[in-house]
Amino acid sequence: MKELNPLLHSQLRLAVMSILMNVEEADFVYLKEKTESTAGNLSVQIDKLTTAGYITAEKGFVGKKTRTVCRITEQGRAAFEQYVEVLKDYLNLQ
């Protein structure tokens, strides 16, 4: 049996990826609210996913406030789909 991708097999990173699989883009505030996480922890996990090339995080401004918008990449989408396939094997869902 294949091993589950360790980068995705974590509570917060998986939650972020699950959200981004379902929307075109989401900002930091939205992700924080939906995942019920702290800003610091979410920021660290977003950095890890960005470094892996699974998501992009684009910093911009709306008025004087900064706004970080996250989007899933093709690489991230493929990794997530593969993760779900392996997960199905583990849970005998196929």
């Binding site: 509570q11 917060l12 699950s18 995942t35 996480s37 997960l87």
Partner: peptide, 24 residues
């Protein structure tokens, strides 16, 4: 939500829960 190891069943729960939340 924290950074911690999860079981396979918890993974599935996270995925379905997040999908439901984005469906609002």
């Amino acid at each position: 939500m924290e950074e911690k190891r999860i079981t396979e069943r918890e993974s599935l729960e996270i995925i379905t829960s997040m999908i439901a939340r984005t469906k609002e």
